[in-house]
Design a protein around this nucleic acid. Structure first.
Lengths: 344, 344
DNA sequence: CTGTTAGCGCTTTCAG
DNA sequence: CTGAAAGCGCTAACAG
């Protein structure tokens, strides 16, 4: 009896079935479920019993189709969920979205533009109320308001030339500048640079900050010591090995992201074990990396909180959705980064 | 002209509007969009022009409401996206789901049972075709088939007593057993244990494997050296500090997950810097941790691929959805773990 | 307090 | 080859 199984083969329970079971009309069920205003208490109880007996769940999709209603969905496209940084980012988005009663539709682009385009188009078709995108960096036609059905878009971590949308960025340039300056003030004069893909705006901005600080000390980057384009740990490790083998190795190395930092630390560690390096260079590491401070390699970390970045992206989006911010002008939010002290 | 803005305030473009614009009926638009069978070529072109002029996106929610159609959504509930392990897991799920043309609805439970319950109920309301859940570990009434509207469920990483569902697990017990055995064979006899929450089945299974190996060598775990319940890095670090200060410290320490491994390594590193420890204990670390092998602490890693676990969970789910597997019996998949060699 | 009607956007019949 | 009607599950608006 309590185990009633009245669903029509494969289908799910509907209001109508609940109504029949409780001996009322669909409207009474609907009303009961949305607070019970204008429904007699005993009828409400009868309805709730039916709901629980049949295992009824209101169909939110049908519900959001009615005029005035929205889907309660936010589309989030991320380049690489496998990078711990973006896991933290997604968490920040999710937590704020939950606060606003919204759910996350998540997609991973794998840094592939076509996939990003397809994903976003699908999200729009699924009636998301807004989009948060960490763009791969290619041309942004698919990010133009028309392609998005004019739903609000927030870009995160990277900006795209020609796309005018609210954007949350790290204070890349000034973080890199401050970190590099700190190392120059400590007396270093020969500083290498390890960076990820040049097409990623973040990488460019960090490189700029790096160069600015050098310039202020009357220095220019040594082309031999600038290695860019390493997108994963093995590539970063090879790049660092190359730097360590330089005839006049640098005394410090700027690493533009967490992948490069890990590769660099692996290379240093291996070289030290092999005896080919005794005094490792000082690292200026953009992004936090677990255990990096325990490696007995002098390191200056430029820290920032991925979760905070995600949370800010979500807040920016909701300020549009709730009509708190209506200007058609795009906002840019720069999340502060903090330059620590040289450790170890 | 190309910039037509015909949407009724706030609303989105509908088939009807596209039809009017192209001077055809809604049906012709619909047919064109689903392949163009039985539509004259020139009419198709006219429709496509209208679609692109108006920026039309087919409403997938309305579409999936029609008989026979499904939502194309998979609900994924994870305990902590901030843990890199679960980022990799989510990636594995996403990639396989994309292969099957499905999208991910993602929620983070934060190890809070109430949140998990609410999330899952919402997912069901949103017509997900299936669920993949890393359960927090509490009672599983909300995971019973009736509560789920009988949609397929796959549990991941942890199992729940009383819930019969397809499950993907790591080979926790045997991995822990093999790792511990290896360390005992290397001559260690005093081995500590650092674990996460006891209510998590994974933690229990790893502890069992650990004990099994000890027993085989005629040993029993020393209660003083078994510290469980550390859920984050700071707690793990404190636990390891306590172990290091023991009057008769262990020569090896089993760490049951990545949080405990990082905490332990931090504690060892600090103690070594402070001079209070000269010969660090050997670590048996369940879960891979970036940089752990470079810490100059002898370490045996019990490795496994979070992405592979996620992918397997998704495959198991789709085998149900596609009707390839219809038995009501729950399957358990154990993902192999690999025990490496003692490093450093 | 409760039920009937109508329609959200779409597509499967069934008629032309 | 094309269109009109009908209905997926739900709930405002309007009776009663």
């Amino acid at each position: 009896m309590g185990d009633a199984e009245p669903r029509t083969a494969g289908g799910r329970v509907t209001v109508k079935e609940v109504a029949d079971y409780a001996g009322v009309s669909a409207m009474t069920v609907s009303r009961t479920l949305s607070g019970g205003k204008n429904v007699r208490a005993d009828v409400q109880r009868r309805v709730m019993d039916a709901v629980s007996a049949l295992g009824y769940h209101r169909n939110e999709n049908a519900r959001s189709m009615r005029p005035g209603h929205t889907s309660g969905l936010i589309g989030v496209a991320i380049t690489n969920l496998g990078n711990p940084y973006y896991g933290g980012f997604a968490l920040g988005v999710e937590e704020v979205a939950a606060t606003y009663g919204r759910r996350i539709l998540l997609g991973n682009t794998g840094e592939v533009l076509a996939r990003e385009t397809q994903l976003i188009s699908d999200f729009v078709g699924r009636q998301v109320e807004g989009l948060i995108v960490v763009p791969t960096g290619g041309a942004g036609e698919h990010l133009q308001p028309r392609a998005l059905g004019h739903i609000p878009l927030v870009l995160a971590a990277r900006s795209i030339p020609g796309v005018s949308a609210d954007t949350v960025l790290l204070d890349d340039t000034s973080g890199a500048y401050e970190g590099t300056k700190r190392i120059l003030q400590a007396g270093h004069r020969r500083v290498a640079f390890l960076g990820n893909s040049v097409s990623v705006s973040t990488a460019t901005r960090r490189f700029e900050g790096f160069c600015q600080a050098l310039a202020e000390f009357g220095l220019a980057p040594d082309p031999d010591l600038v290695l860019r384009g390493q997108q994963d740990v093995p590539a970063a490790r090879r790049a660092m090995e190359q730097i360590l083998q330089h005839s006049a190795p640098p005394t410090a190395v700027f690493s533009a992201n967490n992948r490069n930092t890990i590769g660099a630390l692996e290379a240093i560690s291996a070289a030290r074990d092999a005896g080919s390096v005794t005094t490792p260079p000082t690292l200026i590491a953009f992004d936090d990396v677990e255990l990096a401070n325990q490696m007995n390699v002098p390191i200056l970390t430029i820290s920032h909180d991925p979760k905070a970045l995600g949370a800010e992206a979500a807040r920016m989006l909701f300020s549009r959705l709730d009509g708190d911010f209506t200007s058609s002008e795009a906002r840019i939010f720069n999340l502060a980064v903090s330059v620590g002290n040289i450790r170890s």
